[in-house]
């Protein structure tokens, strides 16, 4: 018993630096936002705010109207589409890059990492003006050369969704490829040799050997990516909703919706309440899906 307690203490001591950092930079803002959500901190009471109870929450519920429901559905669809495509493409590319004796793989990998080596807003800007612009964008210049009619790529919901997905994949795939690639390399090669000797083909090896062995390694990164995809703001906002450059599509995720309907008010108490509600919703959502996944196993 004593030894057990000592071990626990030791474990916490060793992980203390990491956990303290997380408490400070990740947990504290959440708690602070929670605290602000019960105050009237807004432009008129910026530094002298006071406690107003659950007032903000009562008002925040109005943000969650039919428009929000639409945004929520779009966000779920967005997350599923993006995650499936990301995982499949990353797995295929990483597998190809891991074929034995394949030369120049380092060059290819490095080139494929390029989208990741730039700040996101720069890339999104390049896509928006360089590719999708309906007057001057490359896509329409090519369409014209092919004798096709120029398109307004970002003007309707569906085509904006597709364009945003392309850009999001472009931005996110390097990370995913690297994670899957790293995981594939840590798979014990001797198992493969045995499997090949047993006559397993590539598909069987992938399903029964590769995926189960890389799953625990990539799982945390995948879960983190699911959350960041769900919370994606930059891609959709900067491509279609930015003030001064709206494109006509009405595509919203929950965050862009919350931005236009709450965050722009400069009312921190109110916006904090909206944030906390979204946070709680997301946690409930992930606990539910996780439970189902576990039962399915």
């Amino acid at each position: 018993m004593k030894k057990r307690r000592k071990e626990t203490l030791w474990a916490y001591l060793t992980s203390a630096p990491s956990l303290i950092l997380i408490l400070l930079i990740v947990v504290f803002p959440i708690l602070y936002t929670g605290y602000i959500s019960f105050t009237n901190m807004n432009v008129y009471h910026w530094f002298d705010f006071s406690f107003i109870g659950t007032e903000n929450y009562k008002r925040a519920l109005f943000v969650f109207d039919s428009g929000f429901l639409g945004a929520l559905l779009a966000t779920i669809l967005w997350t599923i589409v993006n995650m499936v495509l990301q995982l499949v493409i990353a797995f295929v590319l990483a597998s190809l890059l891991n074929i034995q004796n394949f030369k120049f793989r380092r060059v290819y990998k490095t080139l494929l990492m390029f989208p990741w080596a730039m700040p996101g807003y720069v890339s999104i800007l390049l896509w928006k003006t360089g590719m999708f612009n309906s007057q001057f964008g490359l896509l329409n210049q090519w369409m014209e050369k092919l004798g096709l009619e120029a398109q307004r790529w970002l003007a309707t919901d569906v085509s904006a969704f597709i364009c945003c997905t392309v850009v999001n994949l472009w931005l996110a795939l390097p990370f995913m490829i690297m994670i899957v690639d790293g995981a594939l390399q840590s798979v014990d090669k001797s198992c493969y040799e045995n499997a090949i000797l047993d006559g397993a083909n590539w598909v069987q090896r992938t399903i029964y050997l590769t995926i189960p062995s890389i799953k625990p390694i990539i799982a945390p990164s995948v879960i983190i990516t699911v959350f960041t995809t769900f919370k994606q703001f930059d891609v959709i906002y900067l491509l279609t909703q930015q003030v001064g450059a709206k494109t006509g599509s009405n595509l919203h995720t929950i965050l862009t919706y919350a931005y236009e309907n709450a965050f722009v008010t400069n009312n921190y108490g109110y916006s904090s309440a909206v944030s906390i509600i979204i946070f709680v919703m997301l946690i409930a959502f992930s606990l539910l899906t996780r439970k189902r996944l576990r039962e399915g196993e």
Binding site: V26, I30, T33, I224, F227, S275
Partner: peptide
């Protein structure tokens, strides 16, 4: 190591990612 709170901490850490951090700047 196996120690009290290990699993719980690991899971909570992941869930922290679901916080929309748009307003975190002020807290930080």
């Amino acid at each position: 190591k196996q120690f009290a709170g290990r699993r719980a901490i690991l899971e909570i850490l992941l869930l922290l990612y679901s916080f929309p951090s748009v307003l975190s700047m002020f807290a930080i």
